[in-house]
């Protein structure tokens, strides 16, 4: 799996170097769109909101691709975009107009296909209790849980995503990764506390 992903990333790096950006965007969306949308659905707690944010991610992908320097993998970058877009969506609740990729029907087609199939697949899979716990957590906490536990990313990858485009230097990332580990422990403590509360309420 890792080998296949590395090979995929290497191929797209090559296409990127050749300036075949539309192809890169299409294939990145096809490959990672589903998992990023699944991630968004978890973090936003809403399929509709995830769908809107996903559009923003697609746009950001398209706009940012020419300047992307492969300082991280495209997959990590997609999650960075997704995390940033989620953040922006919270700050700008009325959203922004989508423009960039509408000129490229094949990109829109992939985006639509990802959205339709993934969201259909996601329907009715979340249990109420789990949803409640998720809603109690901060979006960033949810982000950390998904990336670390479900997506099995290294702490440095999680740090890269959480820091976004702000920091390129490895030392800062490593430092942030150490901080994230502590935060991860605190999230778990919070969840335990929530569960204890639930349990107490149920007994009462």
């Amino acid at each position: 799996m890792e080998g296949a992903r590395e090979a995929f990333e290497a191929e797209l790096h090559l296409l990127h170097a050749q300036g075949r950006l539309r192809e890169v965007a299409t294939r990145v969306l096809g490959e990672y769109g589903g998992e990023v949308l699944g991630f968004l659905a978890n973090v936003t707690g809403s399929r509709d909101e995830a769908s809107v944010v996903f559009s923003q991610v697609c746009e950001d992908l398209w706009v940012g691709l020419p300047a992307f320097r492969f300082g991280c993998s495209l997959r990590t970058w997609m999650y960075t975009l997704a995390r940033n877009a989620t953040h922006r969506a919270r700050l700008e609740p009325f959203g922004r107009k989508r423009v960039a990729i509408s000129d490229h029907p094949e990109l829109l087609e992939v985006e639509a296909r990802v959205r339709t199939t993934t969201l259909t697949y996601l329907r009715s899979e979340t249990k109420d209790r789990v949803r409640r716990l998720r809603e109690e957590l901060e979006p960033d906490d949810r982000t950390i849980l998904v990336l670390r536990i479900d997506r099995d990313m290294s702490w440095n990858e999680v740090a890269a995503i959480m820091l976004g485009d702000r920091v390129e230097d490895e030392a800062t990332r490593t430092q942030h990764a150490a901080w994230l580990r502590k935060r991860f422990e605190r999230i778990k403590e919070r969840l335990r506390a929530m569960l204890a509360r639930e349990e107490a309420a149920r007994r009462a």
């Binding site: 589903g34 973090v43 296909r113 990802v114 993934t118 789990v130 716990l133 957590l137 849980l145 969840l191």
Partner: peptide, 15 residues
């Protein structure tokens, strides 16, 4: 187990 479920964000290859 619950932690895993909270963190679960299923995805699927559209194709």
């Amino acid at each position: 187990q619950l932690l895993r479920e909270v963190a679960r964000a299923p995805s699927i290859d559209p194709d």
